[in-house]
Simulated scan of single mutants.
Amino acid sequence: MIFFVRWLLVLLFIVLSFPFLCLFMLVNPLKNKNLHVACRSYTVINKIFSVRVAVSGFDTISTAQPYIYVANHQCNYDVLIVAEALKPGTVIVGKKSLKWLPLVGQLYWLTGSLFIDRNSPRASIQSLRKISKSVVADNTSLWIFPEGTRNKGGDMLPFKSGAFRVAKDMGVGIVPVTISPAVGDVAYNSLRSTEVSIVAHQPIEADVVASMTTKELASYTREIINKGLPII
């Protein structure tokens, strides 16, 4: 019963809020701020599900220059954990198939988030490189899940190289982010609260990024994120 009531509340909230968010984002001249506005709105869903998110490290990240945020990816709920932490001027890079999902696809597009074809590594990297030119010009940061798919709470999957190649091409730093495995234990059908953490580690600044090969950079970043596990 709790499960159905919660999902009914979520559905009502999305249906009622979506038109207003769309209107705001269509007229907002600061397009790279749209995702932050949407994230602030949809954190209400965490309250509905009694998910308490402890956010740390993000307040130390400068907004004076763009970064690429890279995080582990365990389940669909990760996006609502990210919503609690995402900084203004950041957009998410997601798989191309998301654009066809009702509401989700439209919301992604309106927030300025970006789509890439993960089925083709070459096309994926080309898309990211094309994106990077406009991103740097607009001082927009990117949020990428470099595993490419959900690891479903197990060991992290190998990191795909696209995010790290783009960081080197853009000449920007990388912010490793660890999301707690507890995100997979959200108690949808219980009044019990779920405690989840999301932690931004110290940035790997642009000069360090430039000094490493793509493979070294991916491995180094993955190690930082992995060392942050487990966290609540």
Results as ranks from 00 to 15, higher is better:
81 I>G: 12
57 G>N: 08
57 G>Y: 01
58 F>H: 07
165 R>V: 06
65 Q>L: 13
105 G>A: 07
51 V>I: 11
159 F>C: 00
172 V>I: 08
195 E>K: 15
78 D>L: 08
222 R>P: 08
185 D>P: 06
4 F>W: 09
50 S>L: 15
71 A>P: 05
7 W>D: 02
53 V>C: 00
174 I>H: 00
140 T>F: 04
149 T>G: 04
187 A>V: 11
153 G>E: 06
132 S>L: 00
135 V>W: 00
46 N>L: 04
92 I>L: 13
84 E>W: 02
184 G>H: 04
126 Q>V: 00
48 I>D: 07
69 Y>L: 11
183 V>M: 00
4 F>S: 13
212 M>W: 08
95 K>E: 03
195 E>V: 06
47 K>N: 12
95 K>G: 06
226 N>W: 06
5 V>D: 05
180 S>W: 04
116 I>R: 06
119 N>K: 08
3 F>Q: 13
66 P>A: 15
155 D>T: 13
108 Y>F: 05
210 A>C: 10
46 N>I: 04
56 S>G: 15
27 V>Q: 02
37 V>L: 07
34 N>C: 03
158 P>H: 15
29 P>R: 05
52 R>Q: 04
201 H>Q: 01
59 D>Q: 15
144 I>Q: 09
156 M>S: 08
126 Q>N: 13
134 S>K: 11
178 T>P: 05
217 L>R: 04
223 E>M: 02
219 S>F: 02
25 M>Y: 03
151 N>R: 01
90 T>F: 08
164 F>T: 11
15 V>I: 10
116 I>E: 01
63 T>I: 04
58 F>E: 12
2 I>M: 07
128 L>N: 02
134 S>N: 04
117 D>F: 01
203 P>V: 05
181 P>F: 08
179 I>H: 11
123 A>R: 14
191 L>R: 08
162 G>S: 14
200 A>Y: 01
70 V>K: 10
